[in-house]
Design a protein around this nucleic acid. Structure first.
Lengths: 256, 256
DNA sequence: TAGCGGCCCTGTGTATACATAAACCCGCAC
DNA sequence: GTGCGGGTTTATGTATACACAGGGCCGCTA
């Protein structure tokens, strides 16, 4: 059978996964200092794997050097959101077009049904627990299907990188049911085009979806929680979910 | 004055730059084993900065794990070439379109003149020393102008990544003067569209250029030097330009 | 009191030492 | 001769120790 492909419980991988998750859900807010000794203490490992994890975060664009010495979680601005969507549009249009040409129909037909059901579910007010979470899970499976269909590791890697940033800025805006219903319809349109094998239409539908998605994000930011003109700061979310560093007040100072 | 911005002569940076350069010019051929101790000996540094450099290479897609233990220079296949160009097209079309919208006319007008001159120079058989090298230098400045014009760090980072792979596969094909003349004309077309501010035309011209460029690469590969059906191996280029490791024969075995 | 200079301290960058696991090789047995 | 098994070797992964530079703080001085 499958020989447990990812059977490497390396400390550096765990540190990377943990830090990445903390950054994406804003437990580590933009601007937060990433100090090696503090992180190694908090994670219970030595500095060596921590350094490796930090290097990967820098490569991902989630961390960046601050003044030549020291790393911080990469800041996020409204401009960055627009820039990320510009890159995202380029990649997802290409991916949708390629998926339409090389698709496995059955996978996308199943997804089509799911998007239809998801739209109806949200409209009916069902799925009381977490409709948003469920929907993002469905989108995740859609992304996986795209990745498998494009059959292009370079494009998939680039998509993965931009999705990372999209996941982080997602927390800037609040989704509402109305937007989710529209999004489900837009996704269904993309899936339909892929099933039909219509690359041009798939591209256009992707463009429409991303346009509306960006518009929603920008609108929500403007009259939403965060209102800083340029730099966007976290709206709380305690920085010490993990056992708590030796001295907690430090992290708080980093939230500008 | 300028406080020497890049004043960080870190061993890991140097190791990364050197390994990257060796991989891009096929001194380290696809499939070559990247052993930490051997590299640290060869570069005269300890394993720690070597590991950091290797991690960055993996993030770049230039190195990859082999069987869970050990790293090798990422193999290259003809399929990979096509895949890289699929990603490249998505990114460069978007970049050209954005550059057309946000361009600094003077920079591109200067480039236009250079491309015209370069085309004439190659056609006249001048620049006897290295017309190809000169032309790639010009393309490099064109790329820099695009990067500055798009004003999008995420897109620039993605472009940088794909250009890395393009630089490596460049060695698979041999450029001829005829192609260079055509390429200069195609580039001039892109620049003209950017100067005109015509995003659609810039996209189209980019698409044309990349189509022809890919076609040339594939044609050159087919009846060129490398003829392996899938995996492409290096055509020699001694792996031991640097002082020579403790035991040389090992590296040779890695060239498949 | 304000400015300056030196000391200390903290953090990164590098080197080295140790643990562990996989692969290889050799020898033995069938 | 071939297949298997154990020991050895060599690699990576991690921890720790050392070097050094930058910044901050305190005290001294004008």
């Amino acid at each position: 059978m499958a020989p447990t492909p990812g059977a490497a419980p390396r400390a550096s991988d765990l540190a990377y996964a943990r830090l990445r998750a903390d950054i994406l859900d804003w437990a580590l807010a933009p601007g937060a200092v990433l100090a090696e000794v503090e992180l190694s203490t908090r994670l219970g490992i030595s500095r060596t794997p921590v350094r490796e994890a930090l290097a990967r975060l820098v490569a991902d664009g989630l961390a960046e050097p601050l003044g030549g010495r020291g790393l911080v979680v990469a800041p996020v601005s409204v401009e960055n959101v627009v820039e990320i969507f510009e890159l995202r549009e380029a990649l997802e249009r290409q991916a949708a077009a390629l998926a339409a040409e090389r698709h496995d129909p059955r996978v996308f037909e199943a997804l089509r049904d799911e998007f239809v059901a998801a739209g109806e579910s949200v409209a009916a007010g069902e799925s009381v627990i977490g409709p948003v979470h469920d929907y993002y899970d469905l989108v995740g499976r859609f992304d996986d299907a795209i990745d498998a269909a494009v059959q292009n590791p370079y494009l998939v890697a680039a998509l993965d990188g931009v999705r990372t940033h999209v996941a982080r800025i997602r927390r800037l805006s609040r989704d509402n049911p109305a937007r989710l219903i529209d999004a489900a319809r837009e996704h269904r349109q993309i899936v339909d085009a892929i099933i039909e094998g219509d690359a041009r239409l798939a591209e256009a539908a992707t463009r429409v979806h991303l346009h509306n998605s960006l518009r929603t994000v920008l609108d929500t930011i403007d009259h939403g929680a965060a209102s800083a003109p340029k730099r966007l700061s976290a709206r709380a979310s305690d920085p010490a979910r993990t056992p708590a560093p030796t001295r907690a007040p430090r992290a708080e100072r980093t939230l500008r």
